[in-house]
Computed example of a mutant assay.
Amino acid sequence: MNRSRRTVLSTAALTLALSALVLTEVAHAGKPVPSGKGTSKEEGGSDKTGIFAAAKVQYSGSVAKGGGSGNVSSADVNWAPPPCWYAPYLGAKDFKEKMSGDIKDAKSAPGMGGHAGAAINEMQRHYEDDYGWTDTPGYKDYNVEKDGEGMFWAGVENPNEPDYLKRTGCTDLPFWVDNGEPPPPQHEEAITPEMLAALAYQHMELPGTKVTLAPEAVTKVNLPTWAWLDKAVFDEVKATAAINVPGFNLEATTTAKPKSLTLDPGTKDATTIPADGECPIVDGKIGEPYAKGKSKETPPCGITYRRSSGGETFPLKASLTWEISWTGTGQANAVGMPNGTIEAVQDITVEEIQSINR
């Protein structure tokens, strides 16, 4: 039986009821929870994460340990990975067991009268008695008769999203999706390969950017300082994010390739080489190692300081720009993403050249 949204409790009341059943944010790594198995330590899940603990995104390749954000920042300040999304959660029988227990606990909790208690009753009818409304069909006995033919999907919070309101924005009630079918179009935040690529980007761990200098650490006023990067830095780096559960498999691989190095000398009294401070990759390398006999030559990448650091140091900042792209399920050709940057700061001492008057 479907009813208009206007004839049921407000979205706010349903959200209140839903949040009464949710404990904490989803874990970010681990094995998926297959239909008919429920959660267990062996499956990488914990039954204490609430109904928002949807199928976990698994990360592989060059990614940060412990599930935290990687060390690469997007050059586009307006770009960000998804703060939340919808993904497969549990099969029908497991979902019934999970929801029935949570609803029972919520009803017995203090303060669950009034609108909150009524909303929980509506939610129970939604999954047990086929009570639905516009665009949100109800279910008879949690779809148990279709167990193995699909899964309930639920919202997942991105634990690395600092904005709480964005992180908790996927508040639709868990909904059913048949195996092999796309999620209903009204759930715009349903997980996609492009979203997985963005998550892989967020977790990517790139090599550090320590520039080799000559002279090293201590240089002289008006003496060109040569700068270059070890060739090992130029290997492309890959990170993969995937969701694999019965009837649903999705993955994306994000690839980073070094593009250019930008030097910021840490003082206005310096000249960068090239003038804009950006050293491009030429013949598979950035800059050129200093060699004996090149003291009077101009380096292809470097800095000339015009005054001393006065017994202190200048913070030389080196920013390595990486070109980012992704491929994934249904997308064989590489698709561009915003460039990424890695920054490192090195302390440089600049001394006056001592001269002798005769």
Rank of each mutant, 00 (worst) to 15 (best):
G30D: 13
P174Y: 03
K268C: 01
V144L: 10
S308F: 05
L18P: 05
Q124M: 10
K257P: 01
E161T: 11
A214H: 15
R306W: 09
P338T: 07
G117E: 02
T212L: 01
Y139W: 00
L165Y: 09
G45F: 06
Y305K: 01
T313A: 11
P34A: 02
C279Q: 09
D276C: 03
N71D: 09
V72M: 15
A27S: 13
D178Q: 12
Y201R: 08
P300A: 00
L229M: 11
E236F: 08
N179D: 14
G310W: 06
V177T: 06
A53M: 07
R358C: 06
V282E: 12
D172I: 08
G113Y: 06
T168E: 03
T298K: 15
P183Q: 04
F234R: 03
W228E: 01
K31W: 07
Y131W: 12
N2K: 12
A318V: 00
I286Q: 00
T255R: 14
A242S: 15
T321V: 10
R5L: 13
P182M: 06
G101D: 11
L18D: 11
G330Y: 08
V33Q: 13
P193L: 02
E216D: 15
G68T: 12
K210H: 09
P183R: 06
R358M: 09
G247T: 04
M204W: 04
G101H: 07
M112K: 11
A318G: 00
V63E: 00
E25G: 15
T321P: 01
E149Y: 10
E351L: 13
K41P: 08
Y142W: 13
G45V: 03
P182E: 12
K56T: 15
T254H: 04
T171W: 11
S295Y: 07
N357R: 14
G91N: 02
D163F: 09
P224D: 04
G284H: 00
E194N: 11
A118S: 14
P274Y: 06
V77T: 13
E288A: 14
S4D: 13
V26K: 13
V221N: 09
A256V: 09
W153A: 03
H203M: 12
P159K: 15
C84T: 05
P88I: 05
V72H: 03
E145V: 07
E312W: 05
L213F: 10
D130I: 04
G180V: 02
D47I: 13
A190K: 10
T39L: 06
K259L: 04
A190V: 03
D147V: 04
A291E: 14
A332N: 08
L316V: 01
M195L: 09
A17N: 08
V245C: 05
S10G: 05
T7L: 05
S73I: 07
T341D: 13
A27N: 13
D130W: 04
P110N: 10
I281Q: 11
D105P: 02
M204S: 09
K96A: 02
S100I: 05
A239K: 08
